[in-house]
Design a binder for these strands. Structure first.
Length: 214
DNA sequence: AACTACGTAAACATACGTCA
DNA sequence: TGACGTATGTTTACGTAGTT
């Protein structure tokens, strides 16, 4: 057994404060990766096996011994874990935050995100962003650049976007930042989609027409 | 092994909760 | 009260974990 032994106390601590019905090896492994800033993907099976082993042992221990000492020790470690996982202890807005993923994420590490795949754009969108194809995220970025350059946000409610002539075929008279992506999706195509089925606009109605604003 | 379910990635602006 | 962190909404292919 190896360097993984160093994680045993932490595994035990996590197990001690977790609901046995809900806890999973995956969750524990991720927690350890975060806490120790290590990548255990290459050792996933070994780590999982270790976690299962500790789980079984902890269940056994719990049923047999009710060591006050152990509980207190676990509680102390668990407290520090919880503090680390939840940041500075700030905020715990909507209930069970622990299980929720963090919204703010580091930029892609593996670069295989589909968001980076170039997509073909409808003529209306091409006209707006001045590019024939872009990654979805880049499309959004370009659209926002255009909105700011032309000062198209409603000053009273900056979530609202008042469309100009170039935007109207895509978004209608006005839209919101939340509806932006939905409207955009009608103007973004996969290459295969276009090659196999010709263009959406050719097959059925034009994307602009599919927008419910007529 | 095959299948299902879920989390992740990216962009954006604003509202709101929490802490110092 | 200001600063900071997070939720909100949307898209969808891919990776992974869990289940059959």
């Amino acid at each position: 057994m190896s360097d993984l032994d160093g994680y045993v106390p932490m595994i035990d601590a996590i197990l001690s404060v977790s609901d046995p019905d809900k806890v999973s090896a995956k969750r524990i492994r991720k927690a350890i990766q975060e806490l120790f800033a290590v990548n255990l993907e290459g050792q996933r099976k070994v780590v999982n096996a270790l976690i299962v082993e500790r789980f079984n042992q902890s269940q056994e221990t719990r049923s047999n011994i009710s060591s006050q000492d152990l509980v207190e020790k676990d509680a102390a470690i668990a407290k520090s874990i919880s503090k680390k996982l939840n940041g500075t202890g700030k905020r715990s807005k909507s209930g069970s935050e622990a299980s929720k993923p963090k919204k703010k994420r580091k930029s892609s590490e593996n670069g295989n995100s589909l968001s980076q795949n170039k997509m073909l754009l409808s003529p209306e969108l091409q006209e707006l962003v001045k590019e024939p194809e872009l990654a979805r995220t880049q499309v959004v970025k370009k659209v926002w650049e255009y909105i700011r350059e032309n000062d198209l946000q409603n000053p009273a409610d900056r979530r609202e976007i008042i469309c100009d002539d170039r935007m109207k075929p895509i978004f209608g008279e006005k839209t919101t930042m939340f509806a932006l992506n939905k409207s955009l999706s009608k103007h973004i195509y996969n290459r295969g989609e276009v090659i196999e089925g010709k263009e959406k606009s050719e097959v059925s109605e034009s994307p602009a027409a599919s927008n419910d604003i007529s």
